[in-house]
Simulated assay, not measured.
Amino acid sequence: MNALVRTLLGIRRRTLPERPAPGAELAGATGLQVRLGGRAVLTGIDLTARAGEILALVGPNGAGKSTLFGALSGDLPAHRGSVRIAGRAAGAWTPAELALRRAVLPQTAVLSFPFPVAEVVRMGRAPWAGTEREDEDEAAVAEALAATGTAPFADRPFSALSGGERARVALARVLAQRTPLLLLDEPTAALDLRHQELVLRVCRERAAAGDGVVVVLHDLGLAAAYADRVAVLHEGRIAADGDPADVLGDALLSRVYRQPVEVFPHPRSGAPVILPRRTPRTPRTFRRP
């Protein structure tokens, strides 16, 4: 769509985001408190997501991971403190402007109509309609389908897919949006082992290309293997934030998860391997009849 047509249609010219410099802040929180239902769910949160890195949010159920995720995406307002996206207060952006700067993958993807998979992925290109970057639509959709392994069923209706297939299509939609910041809430929850690894490899590729990735994970092993930084949440606060090898220690994790944990380095990669401490199983003996 050329500039004249955009003007005739009354499409307001938007300032498009530029590629961020390595290490630039893409989203951040300072002194953040979020209240839901009259209760403080997050308190005193200071955190930064940067270009070129994967930041994993981990912690037990109810620790505040998804609430922090919602605040960093600009979808949940701060009761106190501040949240910034691309250098501005999150509330200062319009929804259309936010959609050019961050893409959000929620925990569940629900569609009421049987759209073909390719069209669901193409929905990720909606924020760029009327800009010069809408010419990238076809390439962005094709690239996202290929990256998530969903191209073979691009013509199938979304409603006919399995839960794991839907999860990968939802990720493809987010990738097709081509924003500098990706926020993914439990993207591996419905996936088998192979596709869990695929999703985290895609995250690593996006970070290597200069994007920032914030991902909520329950699997501490995946966080240890793929994240550049890990923030451990506990009772609405950040208990630790840093390199996985420094943060994911057995004492901290045992306290936060209220479950004895043992941590040891992987024999090849050196990445932390995290396992619950279990009582050894006693072999059963059977008497011959």
Rank of each mutant, 00 (worst) to 15 (best):
T108K: 14
G212D: 02
N61V: 09
A89Y: 07
R288E: 15
L200D: 06
R258I: 01
Y226R: 02
S112P: 02
A118Q: 14
L275D: 00
R133T: 11
A63W: 10
M1T: 12
P276K: 09
P22Y: 12
I11K: 08
A40K: 08
A240R: 12
G130V: 04
F153P: 09
A154K: 02
P77K: 08
L68S: 04
P244Y: 10
L217V: 01
A224T: 10
I274N: 04
P244G: 04
R156V: 08
T48F: 04
A49W: 03
D155F: 08
D46R: 09
R204M: 04
W93C: 02
S269K: 01
D75A: 15
A142C: 02
A223K: 06
G163H: 06
R194S: 15
G64S: 09
A71E: 03
A225N: 09
F158D: 03
P152L: 11
L111Q: 10
I54L: 11
L191T: 08
R14K: 12
H266Q: 10
P116N: 09
P280I: 14
A99T: 05
V202K: 04
L253D: 01
A27M: 01
A224N: 06
T148L: 07
G38V: 13
S66Y: 06
V34F: 03
D155P: 00
L72T: 03
A3R: 15
R284Q: 14
R258T: 12
R255P: 00
A96H: 08
L9K: 12
F286S: 11
H266M: 09
T43N: 12
L98G: 07
Q259V: 12
E136M: 12
L183V: 01
A146W: 00
F264K: 00
L191D: 11
V117C: 07
A56Q: 05
T282M: 13
R201I: 06
L217I: 07
R277C: 11
L181H: 00
G236V: 12
Y226I: 05
